[in-house]
Design a protein around this nucleic acid. Structure first.
Length: 745
RNA sequence: GGGCGUUUAGCUCAGUUGGUAGAGCAACUCUUUUACACAGAGAAGGUCACAGGUUCGAGUCCUGUAACGCCCACCA
């Protein structure tokens, strides 16, 4: 709170020295982002230049210019934007502004994501505070509440996106759950069903008892927990002891697997034993299966086909029956009163107590193992057999006359070089994920989302884009995984399934910029859908950014209380400063430990630019940039220098190295232009200086300022645009569409 | 169990193709000179995790080790 710079010397001697009389008053004060940025935003809004059609109409972009497009990864309508979003917007806007200035037909298409499960649970929690459950409201009323919440979130998000300076084209805004996107979803579902790629199946799935819905494999996290490994026999007569951490599930066992090469148990393979386990009659068949690890536990595994995906696979291999013993509320469905209706945790104790009383428990030992947890709700996953809808990723089908699988389409798009992933090392991650991919469960027991376009009437089933004719049809109550609609995003936003001009012009999109944490959820699924439906890649380059962490490198979270609101940072330091702090030095895939000091440094830089301008404007009054005088060799060298820099920056930008480009520009502007060139040129600008040399220097300064502003505009759009508005020798009405100072490659 | 990343100045981090290291912040000295004290000038600070190797030369390439972190995976 100490330093308000004295400016008294200005008013005392306004006409002294080389300071011109014509520098606008505004430059007498330090740069103020808070007063300047809203005005610039207004100018951008009015110009309409973020719409490529307007750019063509106003003649700042050639009608036949090459297209460049990005679709904004749609933020979830679950609340407000965080620093991760700010980082995404900063990077994408930098790319977009660069391409627009290069004269490309540039489209950045914005939108939001309904984010089914996330939004629904958020609203459920809000209602809970008022003691209201969604069942009390009913489906329609509940959905109205969700939509209202979504609308409010949407409006907040839109204003935040604008505040970041993101030059998206709002006239093309989309929502993953609006009418146009809904048509795209139903069209896709129908086509995939017709091709046999979507099927309804009874399988063991990941049931989230807390969220009361099925979730996909990708939505399951593994957490290390301490547990007890119990070693026991089903009965006194049973020849093989087995080990488990979940004794309560053993009432659903139908087999025991031993390794066929294990001499201890080989003689029992093929035999079936009837036992009564904790009051439940079981028929256990001993099978030989290579997957049984002779080294672990007793070397024998109890097979519970209904409550373990691996056991289900084993059961399928050996023709063992599946018996469900746990229900959707994670309560027991079998047994006497000590089990029936009890929670699994209580049932576990009951079973252990029974084993002890029967003398069947041979060993109890502590063990560290992985527990499956639902990433959204945090609930412990209960594998259950259920009838759900799936996308078959391994099924061979006819794709434009070629036999292939969805998995193959995903692999080929990247392996064949049609998509470049940055940083490259994520290729491996991507391929590894594909190799391990199982069928994608796409149905959810949620109310908020795209209702599955399937109708039932008795034994009849209708799969269609619209509801069937006639009475008595009931639509499937479930909704689709939110990623199903996100997967269509690059082309559903451009009008697909209609063959629109936008689709022809802007698809495939040029680059997808998103976080590495959703490479599977989203990036892979977009490649799948685009390859399947359009037979082309959804984007040519994938630029993956990392996480924004706090200055200590910790993930930002509510429980740590270290969440930083980007709007607060903008209020304090300006958008340009925040953008620079989010871009400079942060390569693709690298996490960013955001410190406020870094932002402060760049807010000073904005002020430095302000003062560079103040000096230059004072020195270059009357200069006509279009009339280049014969330059003194020193000045010519400076012109050559910045031209070379422009080329280098262009190259960096085209190779997605803007984290380097930003830093180079910072150094050039501050430590070359200001510290060396301006300091060194003062002697040539005095009244007694040689007029020819003075003219040379003045032209050179105007040239350097103009080009510095252009090169910096993609990074710091606000301050550069604000300055541009005061330049007497500008060659475009707005900097955002001014020609880029290096020729296209 | 696999795969990947990180380890560079007190702190947070850059360092694109190999040529004896850079920025911001912090700390030190000087300067309020007519663009800017949200500044300028100057000085200081690093055996680039460790051990080998390739090379005329390695923070940068190769091998191994350690610590930390992340992702994936059906060891019950």
């Amino acid at each position: 709170m100490k330093n308000l710079p004295p400016i008294s010397h200005q008013s005392e001697a306004p006409n002294r020295g080389i300071m011109a009389r014509m520098v606008p008053d505004i430059f007498e004060k330090p740069y103020s982002p808070t007063t300047s940025e809203p005005k610039v935003l207004e100018q951008w809004d009015e110009s309409g230049y973020s719409n490529p059609d307007t750019c063509i109409k106003k003649g700042v972009c050639a009608p036949d210019a090459e297209a460049f497009s990005i679709v904004l990864p749609p933020p979830n309508v679950t609340g407000t934007l965080h620093t991760g979003h700010a980082s995404m917007l900063a990077i994408e806007d930098t790319i977009i502004r660069f391409r627009r200035m290069q004269g490309k037909k540039t489209l950045w298409l914005p939108g939001t994501d309904h984010a089914g499960i996330a939004t629904q649970s958020k609203v459920e929690k809000l209602l809970e505070k008022d003691g209201v459950r969604k069942q009390d409201l009913g489906r329609d009323e509940f959905l109205k509440r969700v939509e209202q919440f979504a609308q409010e979130s949407h409006d907040t998000i839109v204003s935040q996106v604008k505040r970041m300076g993101a030059s998206v084209d709002w006239t093309r805004e989309a929502f993953t759950l609006d009418e146009a996107r809904s048509l795209a979803v139903r069209t896709t579902f129908k086509k995939m069903h017709d091709d046999g790629l979507i099927y309804r199946g009874y399988k063991v799935i990941n049931w989230d008892p807390k969220g009361q819905t099925v979730i996909s494999d990708d939505e399951v996290n593994h957490e290390e927990r301490q547990a007890t490994l119990y070693t026991f026999r089903y009965s006194k007569d049973f020849p093989i002891p087995i080990a488990t951490t979940r004794p309560e599930t053993k009432v659903g066992d139908t087999g025991v697997a031993v390794n066929p090469n294990d001499p201890r148990y080989a003689e029992h393979i093929g035999k079936t034993f009837d036992v009564t386990f904790c009051g439940v009659p079981l028929s256990i068949k001993v099978v030989g299966d290579e997957s049984a690890d002779m080294e672990f536990g007793t070397g024998a595994v109890g097979i519970t086909p209904a409550h373990s995906q691996t056991d289900a696979q084993m059961a399928e291999r050996h023709g063992l029956p599946m018996v469900q013993v746990i229900d959707e509320r994670a309560k027991m469905m079998v047994g006497g009163e000590e089990l029936m209706g009890k929670k699994t945790t209580e049932a576990r104790e009951a079973v252990v107590a029974w084993l002890q009383s029967e003398g069947l428990l041979e060993k109890e030992e502590p063990i560290t193992h992985n527990v499956s947890v639902a990433e959204r709700s945090g609930g412990v996953i209960e594998p259950l057999p259920k009838t759900q809808w799936f996308v078959a990723v391994n099924k061979t089908f006819d794709h434009n006359g070629k036999q292939t699988t969805l998995k193959e389409i995903m692999r080929e798009s990247v392996a064949g070089g049609n998509i470049q992933i940055l940083p490259e090392r994520f290729d491996k991650t991507y391929f590894h994920w594909i190799d391990n991919l199982h069928d994608w469960c796409i149905s959810r027991q949620l109310w908020y989302g795209h209702r599955i376009p399937v109708w039932y009437r008795g034994e009849e089933t209708h799969v269609g884009i619209t509801a069937p004719e006639g009475d008595g049809w009931e639509q499937d109550p479930d909704t689709l995984d939110t990623w199903f609609s996100s997967a269509l995003w690059t082309f559903s936003t451009l009008g697909w399934p209609q063959q629109t001009d936008d689709l022809a012009t802007y698809h495939p999109t040029s680059v997808l910029e998103t976080g590495y944490d959703i490479i599977f959820f989203w990036v892979a699924r977009m490649i799948l859908m685009s390859g399947y439906l359009l037979d082309e890649v959804p984007f040519k380059t994938v630029y993956l950014h990392g996480l924004v962490r706090d200055e200590k490198g910790r993930k930002m979270s509510k429980s740590l209380g270290n969440i930083v609101d980007p709007l607060d940072l903008i209020d304090k330091h300006g958008t340009d400063a925040l953008r620079m702090a989010l871009i400079v030095g942060i390569g693709p895939g690298a996490d960013n430990n955001l410190s406020e000091n870094k932002i402060k440094a760049y807010s000073k830089f904005a002020n430095k630019l302000w003062n560079i301008t103040r000096f230059t404007l004072g020195a270059t009054e009357g200069v006509d940039l279009t009339k280049k005088p014969t330059l003194h060799a020193d000045d010519e060298a400076r012109v050559v220098e910045i031209d070379a820099l422009a080329k280098e920056i262009t190259n960096d930008m085209e190779l997605y190295r803007f984290y380097l480009a930003g830093e180079k520009l910072y150094h050039y502007a501050w430590h070359t232009f200001a510290d060396i060139i301006i300091e060194g040129c003062k002697e040539h600008l005095t009244e007694t200086a040689d007029p020819e040399r003075s003219a040379s220097t003045r032209w050179m300064l105007a040239y350097l300022l103009t080009n510095t502003l252009k090169l910096l505009h993609p990074f710091m759009p606000f301050v550069t645009e604000a300055i541009w508005g005061h330049l007497p020798y500008k060659n475009a009405d707005m900097l955002m569409v001014a020609p880029w100072p290096a020729p296209n490659k």
